[in-house]
Structure formats: C-alpha cells, structure tokens
C-alpha cells in the first residue's frame, strides 16, 4: 500500500514538472496571441491617457518653450473656474433632460412602430434619418427653424397668438432647446435598439400571459415586455448618458458658448484649442473621463443585477 502510494506520488511529482514545462510554453503562446490586442489597446487608449495625465500636472501651453510641474494646481483651478463650473452645470441639465426623454420616448415609439405591419419600414427609416444626418448641418437647420423672426416654429407660435420665443438667445431656454435637439437626434437610434429588443421577445411569453389572465395591454407590458427589455434598456441608458455628456456640435454651431451656454466638451475645446492651455485642458479632459467612467460603471453595476436572469 505504502509502496504504491510512494510510487504514485513520485509519478505525480514527475508529472507536475513535465506539465510545468509544457505550461510555460503554452504561456508564451498565449502571450503571443494576446500581444496584438494589448499593443493596440496600449497605443490607442492607455498611452494617450497616461500622456494626458502627465500633461494635466503641468502648466504646458501649446508651443511654449518652458513648462513647469505644478502638481494638482490645474484641478484646484478647475473647481474655482466659474466657466468650468457653469459648463458642468449646463451639461448635467442637458443630460437630465436628454437621458429620460431619449430613452422613454424611444421605447414608446418602438412599441408603436413594432405594432405596425406594412408601414413599419417607413417609420423606422423616418425616425432613423436624424441619426444618419450630420449634427453640424442639422444644427444649422434648427437654427433656421427656431429663428425668432424668420423661423417657422416662431411663426406658428405667433399664429397661435403668443409672443415669439428667443430659443437661442434667452439664457434659460438655451440648454433645454439644445437638449430637445439632442433628444430628436438620438431618438431614432434608441428606437431601433428597442425594436431589436422587442423582436427578440418570444411570442410564447405573450400567449402564456394572455392565458394567465393578462387581459389588459398594460399587464402584458409589465409582465413580459418591460422585464424582457431589461438588457436593451441598460444598454440604451448607458449609451444615451455617454452621448449626452459628449454634447458639443449643437453648442459649437448654435451659440459658440455665448450667453453662458458652454458645456464640458465645449469648454475643454476652448481651453485646449482656442486658448492653447494644453495642461489645463488635459486636466479638464481627465475630469470628463472620470465622470463618464463613474456613470457607466455605476449604471452597469446597478442595472446588471436587475436585468440578468
């Protein structure tokens, strides 16, 4: 018995050694296979972010001959900078309007379009058009539509007997107006995502719900549609939040940041490319990245628990 045990343990020991040599070879092969992905990731994301973080700790200005390490001074300055704080506030207001409207209106549209049989293709294309159009060009169109004296929107308001509204010069209306354009732009894309989610729901579940006594469409929505759309909703909310925080084109075209309408991305564009404060812009970019990261991770962790069965 002991003999056998010893023999087997000796064999096992030899086996481990042999295996570890083979394992090492496998490891090298594995590294070779992941190398392209790692190198690309490093070149495109990791190294630029590290360089960015490096710049954010200096007072470097584009073309300057000397530069100083100033530690976290840029970040301290940012949270004292009224323009940056205003842009942060504007971006949050913008996101608070765009995220719920962009998600729930799109869901409503998807439900309506999903019920169409023959006209479905038409509605899909119609709502998807703004996604394919360049926002810069579309912003110009909106500028015309909302113009206080020649725009059709104000013409309609005047025809109804109200005072014309200065959508693009009244400071309190600026951000909501741009948010509406943002919703208009993102609606079609989110609707298509929801439509894909709706198509993937098995018909059996609706039939089971009907036999289980779900006579009201609302019951079927709560019992089947909404829970089954969980994964789609998570994805739509995350992508919508990210694109809401990235708002730039509408500001650049419609107001150029006038009347206190700067947003995060527009402010860091001004600092980096108009005023050449590269170091400061790098710090702002880092803050922007952290906000996006926290939002996406938070939403994913929070909703993930609810949507995966």
């Amino acid at each position: 018995m002991t003999l056998i045990l010893e023999a087997s343990s000796a064999a096992a020991g030899r086996g481990t050694r042999v295996r570890s040599k083979g394992e090492r070879r496998m490891m090298w092969k594995a590294l070779l296979f992941v190398a392209p992905a790692v190198l690309l990731l490093a070149a495109i994301y990791i190294i630029p972010v590290v360089v960015l973080a490096g710049f954010s700790l200096t007072d470097y200005q584009l073309g300057a001959l000397s530069t100083r390490f100033i530690a976290l001074e840029n970040f301290a300055k940012a949270f004292d900078d009224p323009v940056f704080l205003r842009s942060l506030k504007n971006t949050v207001i913008y996101a608070v309007i765009v995220i719920p409207l962009g998600v729930f209106l799109a869901l409503g549209l998807a439900l309506l379009v999903h019920g169409r049989k023959r006209s479905r293709a038409f509605w899909e294309a119609a709502y998807f058009l703004p996604v394919t159009a360049t926002l810069v060009a579309m912003a110009t169109v909106w500028q015309f539509l909302l113009h206080p004296s020649i725009g059709p929107v104000n013409a309609a308001i005047k025809w109804l007997g109200f005072e014309p509204v200065a959508f693009l010069s009244n400071p309190t209306l600026l951000i909501p107006t741009m948010a509406m354009i943002g919703v208009w732009q993102i609606l079609g894309f989110n609707m298509v995502l929801f439509l894909a989610g709706l198509t993937a729901i098995p018909k059996d579940l609706y039939e089971a719900a009907r036999l289980d006594g779900a006579r009201h469409p609302f019951d079927r929505f709560v019992t089947v549609t909404w829970p089954m759309l969980g994964p789609t909703t998570l994805f739509v909310v995350v992508t919508t939040s990210i694109s809401a925080f990235k708002v730039f084109e509408t500001v650049a075209v419609l107001t150029k940041g006038r009347f206190g309408s700067e947003t995060l991305l527009f402010d860091l564009y001004l600092e980096g490319f108009e005023y050449s404060n590269t170091g400061y812009a790098a710090a702002l970019t880092l803050i922007f990245l952290v906000i996006i990261l926290v939002l996406s991770i938070g939403q994913t962790l929070h909703l993930d628990r609810k949507v995966h069965y």
Binding site: D204, E207, A208, R210, L211, D212, A214, T223, V224
Partner: peptide, 15 residues
C-alpha cells in the same frame, strides 16, 4: 384571458 383555460407550452414559456 377570459376563457379560464390553462396551457402548457412546448417551450414552457416561463417568465
């Protein structure tokens, strides 16, 4: 929903 029937589906159709 008004027929008071129960059905078992091939796919089970559980929520």
């Amino acid at each position: 929903s008004a027929r008071n029937l129960a059905m078992v589906f091939q796919s089970y159709a559980l929520y």
